[in-house]
């Protein structure tokens, strides 16, 4: 871990009462990075975010931001912004006053304040809504107000709680673009929390996959998507066929099953292998499966097979010949197409 990282979580332990939620978390974030904390609910990602914001006390360890230990610094003195999942706009204040709220507390007044608030609203395209109340705006507009309200404070780190999950598909793309633009324009370090792998993959520079309060894997979206280190990460990013390895064979409920080809040199130490449905070879190979279900998915067709290996999910081009339910079909899980897992948990 580099000592010069912009934000460092050093053996940070978080607890609710005596129940430790996040033990000794180590994370280093560089200035201007866009980090996703990804994991299922209860994995500690939101807890971690709240601790960085100062809303949850750190039990032990340190949080260092921009060279300053902020572990014991109060939330209102941290220069950390948070965009809440619910946006948390102040309902009694106008859009203008919502954005001005933090600036007024800083003692900013008059034309300086006005210029800053107007600029903030303009940057999110809401200048004409300054006098509206939050309830008079759509969800997407409210979120942009929340973004402007955080950004005018020029935070060192902006935290975002599930920034895209309340939006419909079209607004999702808008907001994603918006966040990337803000990040590029201001160079602010962003950390967002999500349970949606697609959201993390599309937005983040680096993804931190969390499980039960621990970091499972840190990597670029490509790393996480193509090279998951564990069965948990593989499952989370859509590898549906995951097997532990024992003595070079797949361990299934029906015993050890040899692979069709020897393991490559890169994977002798692998604890398991994982295949996406797209990586399953259908129509040839040493294994036999019975088609239990099939569904058309546009460009592709998905199959659910019952086999000696257990349940196999396969996905092939829709132009391939269709295998009817109940028929037997040959398939293969080729070792060199699989993602080797270094941990099987």
């Amino acid at each position: 871990m580099s000592k010069t990282s912009y934000l460092t979580l050093d053996k940070m332990t978080l607890a609710y009462g005596d129940a430790v939620a996040v033990p000794e978390l180590e994370l280093a974030v560089e200035k201007g990075e866009l980090i996703a904390l990804l994991g299922p609910s209860g994995c500690g990602k939101t807890t971690t975010m709240r601790a960085i914001a100062g809303l949850l006390p750190v039990k032990s360890g340190r949080v260092v931001l921009d060279g300053v230990d902020i572990t014991r610094v109060a939330a209102n003195k941290r220069a950390v912004g948070l965009m809440f999942q619910s946006y948390a706009l102040f309902p009694h204040l106008t859009v203008y006053e919502n954005v001005a709220f933090g600036l007024r507390l800083k003692g900013m007044r008059g034309s300086e304040l006005d210029a800053k608030v107007r600029a903030g609203l303009t940057s999110v395209g809401l200048a004409q809504f300054a006098d509206r109340k939050p309830a008079e705006l759509s969800g997407g507009q409210q979120q942009r107000v929340a973004l402007a309200r955080s950004m005018v404070m020029e935070p060192k780190v902006l935290l975002l709680d599930e920034p895209l999950s309340n939006l419909d598909a079209r607004l999702r793309l808008d907001m994603r673009t918006e966040l990337q633009r803000v990040q590029k324009d201001t160079g602010v370090t962003m950390i967002f929390v999500t349970h949606d792998q697609a959201e993390a993959l599309s937005l983040a520079d680096r993804i931190v996959v969390m499980k039960s309060g621990r970091i499972e894997q840190i990597g670029t979206p490509e790393d996480i998507y193509n090279r998951p280190v564990s069965a948990f990460v593989a499952d989370f990013v859509g590898f549906e066929n995951i097997f532990p390895l024992e003595a070079g064979k797949l361990k299934t409920s029906a015993g050890l099953v040899p692979l069709s080809q020897p393991l490559s040199d890169q994977t002798p130490s692998a604890a398991g292998l994982a295949w996406r449905p797209r990586m399953v070879t259908l129509g040839s190979g040493p294994f036999r499966g019975t088609v239990r279900g099939t569904s058309f998915a546009g460009h592709t067709r998905e199959y659910l097979l019952d086999s000696v290996l257990g349940e196999i999910k396969a996905e092939v081009d829709a132009s391939e010949p269709v295998h009817a339910i109940g028929t037997e079909v040959a398939f293969d899980l080729e070792a060199d197409r699989a993602a080797p897992l270094s941990r099987f948990n």
């Binding site: 914001a53 100062g54 809303l55 939330a75 102040f90 955080s150």
Partner: peptide, 25 residues
Amino acid sequence: SDIEEAAVLLGSSRLGAFFRVVLPN
């Protein structure tokens, strides 16, 4: 209750958040 946390993260004290965003609402 998250509007209070929002107020705190914008620089308000806990007590200040009560008077600025809870009481008016």
